[in-house]
């Protein structure tokens, strides 16, 4: 009954789409964040949602639908009415879950319409404060020489730190001992406490620990050095080429949303990303909002497609799946 009802509603939504678009939005919009409240993605979403609400003249409320690496929330949006009142803000996990989960309840590339990219949060390769290697080159040599001894922490399968770690190990062609945690909090605790050696995580989680001297930073995964961490070299400077990884975030709508509504949302997102408050808070997080050219449906679609292709071989080579 659910399915047929939903289908009827969907058909109705498509037929009346253009008429509705003129008055859109006429009620509260729900933005689903597929992670729990308080995390970095939630924070990004709340900042963007607040700025977009101001522009659209309708409140955007955040609904945290956590679970299964973000796939539960994404699945909810995939099945929602494509009326523009249910949106999804998801990060890089949107592309990796396509490979990490062999039985996804939705088709990643065909279940959504795209609104635009939001931001690309850089990553940092960090270690416990008293870890021996002095710089990135020394770290790679040390890791290769002591591959049985070096431990790498991650925040669970599919987490940013897990992806970055897989990429790092495949780049240096050395498998390290991986120590998985449930979430960034406990992983960071053990890194600060010196129980594990290495981690690679978003600046959101690492910048302040680095500045406070609690952990040691080896490199950023960006093209250029970060304004927030001017003393930390890029991975390329340390001899690790093609190691640009970022936790990119995008806004999606269910497939079949009318193009007018998508255009309206895209324009609103672009405005929101220029909001001084958003720019400032993003800078505090160690990241910058996506450019106007990136905050478009085309750019997000291209990003998602290329990222799925990029991660599939890395994940398959590591042989780790989340289901």
């Amino acid at each position: 009954m659910f399915k047929s009802l939903a289908a009827a509603v969907a058909a109705f939504g498509v037929l009346t789409g253009s008429a509705v678009a003129e008055t859109y939005p006429s009620r509260v919009i729900t933005m689903i964040v597929p992670f729990s409240a308080g995390g970095p993605t939630d924070t990004v979403s709340r900042l963007v949602a607040e700025a977009m609400s101001k522009d659209l003249g309708q409140q955007i409320v955040i609904e945290n639908v956590g679970g299964a690496g973000g796939t539960l929330g994404a699945g909810r949006v995939a099945k929602a009415d494509p009326d523009g009142y249910t949106l999804l803000l998801h990060h890089i996990g949107m592309s990796t879950s396509a490979t990490l989960y062999r039985k996804l309840p939705y088709d990643t590339l065909n279940a959504f319409d795209y609104v635009g990219l939001v931001t690309d949060v850089p990553m940092t390769i960090v270690a416990r404060a008293n870890f021996e290697p002095a710089d990135m080159k020394a770290l790679v040599e040390y890791a290769k020489a002591n591959k049985d001894k070096v431990t790498y922490a991650n925040a669970g399968i599919g987490a940013a730190s897990h992806l970055c770690g897989m990429l790092f190990m495949s780049k240096i062609e050395t498998p390290l001992t991986t120590v998985p945690y449930k979430g960034t909090g406990p992983a960071m605790t053990d890194l600060v406490g010196g129980q594990v050696d290495l981690m690679c995580d978003q600046t959101t989680n690492t910048t302040n620990q680095i500045k406070g001297g609690k952990i040691k930073a080896y490199a950023t995964t960006t093209k250029e050095r970060l304004a927030a961490l001017p003393n930390v070299p890029t991975a390329a400077e340390g001899g690790l080429t093609d190691f640009e990884v970022g936790i990119w975030h995008g806004v999606y709508a269910p497939k079949g949303t009318s193009p007018e509504i998508i255009a309206k949302l895209s324009a609103s997102l672009q405005k929101a990303l220029k909001d001084p408050n958003v720019v400032k808070r993003f800078a505090d997080l160690g990241t910058v909002p996506s450019s106007e050219a990136d905050a478009t449906p085309e750019a997000l679609k291209a990003k998602l497609t290329s990222e799925i292709a990029r991660w599939a071989p890395v994940i398959k080579a590591a042989g780790v799946y989340a289901d």
């Binding site: 009802l5 509603v9 729900t30 409320v61 955040i62 609904e63 009415d81």
Partner: peptide
């Protein structure tokens, strides 16, 4: 409390 559930649902 702003519970994100519609008061009157689509049905």
């Amino acid at each position: 409390l702003g519970l994100p559930v519609q008061r009157i649902g689509p049905w």
